[in-house]
Amino acid sequence: MLKVSLPLWWTADAVALLAHGLLLTVLFTLVTTVTSLVVGLIIGSWRLSTNTVLRHIAGIFVEVHRNVPALVLVIFWAFAVPNLFPPDVRKTLFFANPVITRLTAATGLPLIYYVVATIVALTLNTSAYIAEIFRAGVGTIAQEHVDAARTLGASRSGVYWSLLLPQGVRASFPALSARLVHNMKNTSLAALVAVPELFRSTETAMSLSFQAMPFLLLTTGLYLATAVGLSWMLSLVERRLNHRSASTWTTAAATNNA
């Protein structure tokens, strides 16, 4: 019978640790992808708005969150913001109240506030980039296209919802997905605020087993696999978007010819 001998560092504990870490990294990625797409598209639309106040708010938001490293944002929201409050208020507000307790019980994660803070920080950072990318994408839409829609009687919101938003997203999709993959890599910054995601669990496994290289190489592979998986998913979305648009086009053309 074939007997496979496993290397010493490959213990059940280490595997469980890394599996939990990977799960958390994937969840982080999915959640921040969705939140930063939503926030980013809203801010990006504000930047195109005719309302001066909204446009300026969006401009400041983008400049602030794009020019500061994601790490500074993560540490600011996780460590600095609670320190604004005196110790007892801080404790009830961020670490020991019914909502936090319930969330901890539901997710099994210690110090849930740091998870929330990381999600907030990454969302702010990535959405600022997405807003700019979306704005550039909308910039590629021909002005004649918008004028034609307005002349044919489309309302301002109609132009936005059925012309600027879908075409802008489609035009900026390659840059958007590159940024979202970057965002996936940025989730590793959560390790610096004690969230046990993949990088943090790798560090833990390394210090428990006194073995560095095998774990680091394994983690490299896992991150690469996550990046490939995410870009594959995004390419599916892109194909879907392009396909949908192409078929609407042809239907519209066919109706026009009939």
Binding site: A191, F199, M213, L216, T219, Y223, A227
Partner: peptide, 19 residues
Amino acid sequence: VFIITGVPLLVLLLLVYQI
């Protein structure tokens, strides 16, 4: 290029330092 751009900088830093 695929490996370096697919891995967080934190992992790369630790990996290089370990070697």
